[in-house]
Design a protein around this nucleic acid. Structure first.
Lengths: 209, 209
DNA sequence: CTGTTTCTGCTAGAATAATAACATATGGTC
DNA sequence: GACCATATGTTATTATTCTAGCAGAAACAG
C-alpha cells in the first residue's frame, strides 16, 4: 500500500522535479539532498524525507540518480495519469491558461473553454473551441470529445461576480474538482472539491514580512 | 507590538474578507464565526483565532460586525499600503495579469511590463507600457514613473526556460520580491525573496486525493 | 427580572510538520 | 586494505497548526 503524500510534500516534490529536469538538460547525473535543499533554501533532511515517500532510494556518498529520481517523482505524483479539464471563462486569464504549455507536461489537458460572450463562442484558443456555457451539459456527456474520459476538473476564470453562478452551472456536468482562480468563496455540494488558488492571499503572505 | 500573522492565517483572512464583502453587498450587518466556518468548511474556532490576530472583537450572541471586521482585516493585511510591481514577460499570462482588475483592490499596482519581443515593445496593456527588458535599470530608477515609490516586486511570467536569466537581470533593479509564475526554481541572492506560485504543485496536491 | 440560548475568547490537547541528530554505508585516497 | 569524507535513511526533538472544550457575556423570551 502506498501511503498518501501530504500536500506540502507534493508541492516541494514538484520543485525537486524541476531541478531534476535541469540536471538532465545539463547532463548532471547525480544530485544530493543537500544540493536540492540549497537551491530551495530548505532543510536537507526535509528533502530526504520527501523523497522517501516516492519509493526510490539514493546511494550513500553519491546522492540520487537524477533521471531515476525524476521518474520516481512523476510516478508518485501521477504526472502520467492524464486528466482532462474545462476552462470556465474565456477572458484574459482563461485564454492565457488555455495557452499555457506547461500543463501538458504534468498530464493536464484542456479540452474546451466556456463563456457567455457571443463574440467568443466558436472561436479557437490554442486549438480548443470556446462553447457557450449553456452547452456544458451537452459537451460534458459527449464522450468522443474527451477520449471516453470524463472531464472532472473545471478551471474557473470568470469575473468574481459571476463565480458562484458559474459554479452552480457546473453541477450539471460531471465536474468533481473546481480550481478556483477567482477571489470568490464558492458554495457547492460536498461531493465537489474546491481549491482556491487565492492569488492575493499568496501575494499578501509573501510580501508581508 | 503587533505580532506577525502566519501565512496560513493570511490566506484564510483574505477568504473571510471576500465573504465580508458579500455581506456588505447583501446588506448583512452581522456574521458569526460559525457561518464563516461553514462557508469554508473549516473549524469555527479556527476562524475566531484568525480574527483575534486582527485587533478587533465580536459580540457575544451576535457575532462580528461585517463592515468593522472587513476593515480590521484590511488593516491587518495592509491592503491600503500601495505596492508597485513590474511584470516581466508580456506573454499570455503576463498580459492577463496586467489586466487583472482584482489586484488594485488589494493595493497592488502594475507599473510597467517588460519583454524581449520587438513586436511587443511600446505597446500598451491595460494602459501600462511594455518596455524592452534592457531598459529595466533605467525605468526602475525613474522615480516619476512610479510616484516616487520604489518598485520592489517583480511578477515573473516568462517561459520557464528564460526564468533564471530574467531573474538575474532583475538584480540590476531595486526588486526585492519575485512572484514566480514559472515552474522554474530560481537561484538568487539572499536579499531577494522568491515566492513560487507553483501552479502545478497546487493542482497535483488538489487532485491527488 | 430570571432562565435559556447562543456566540465569543481562551486554554488545553491532539495532530502535523520541520529541524536536528546520528548510525550506517559507500566511494575515494594514500 | 585501512582511513577519511560524505550522504543516505531513520529516529528523536522541537515547533507550529488545528481541533475540541469550556467559562463567561449578551440578547431574548416569558
Amino acid at each position: 500500500m502506498v501511503k498518501a503524500i501530504p500536500g506540502k510534500a507534493v508541492k516541494r516534490l514538484t520543485l525537486y522535479h524541476y531541478i531534476l529536469s535541469d540536471c538532465t538538460r545539463q547532463n548532471v547525473e547525480h544530485i544530493s539532498s543537500q544540493q536540492i535543499a540549497g537551491l530551495l533554501q530548505i532543510d536537507d533532511s526535509q528533502v530526504r524525507k520527501d523523497i522517501a515517500l516516492c519509493q526510490t532510494s539514493g546511494r550513500t556518498n553519491v546522492g540520487y540518480k537524477a533521471a531515476e529520481l525524476k521518474k520516481a517523482i512523476e510516478q508518485a505524483l501521477g504526472f502520467k495519469e492524464k486528466k482532462s479539464a474545462f476552462i470556465i471563462g474565456a477572458g484574459n486569464l482563461g485564454r492565457a491558461l488555455a495557452r499555457h504549455t506547461d500543463f501538458q507536461d504534468y498530464g493536464l489537458d484542456i479540452v474546451a473553454l466556456f463563456d457567455t460572450d457571443p463574440a467568443k463562442i466558436d472561436t479557437l484558443v490554442n486549438g480548443r473551441k470556446v462553447f457557450h456555457i449553456s452547452e456544458l451539459f451537452h459537451i460534458s456527456t459527449r464522450e468522443n470529445l474527451v477520449n471516453k474520459q470524463k472531464v472532472e476538473i473545471a478551471i474557473l476564470t470568470v469575473p468574481g461576480a459571476a463565480a458562484q453562478k458559474s459554479a452552480e452551472l457546473l453541477l450539471q456536468s460531471q465536474i468533481k474538482y473546481i480550481w478556483n482562480f477567482t477571489p470568490a468563496v464558492l458554495s457547492v455540494p460536498d461531493n465537489i472539491r474546491v481549491y482556491n488558488e487565492n492569488l492575493m492571499g499568496n501575494f499578501l503572505d509573501f510580501t508581508k514580512n
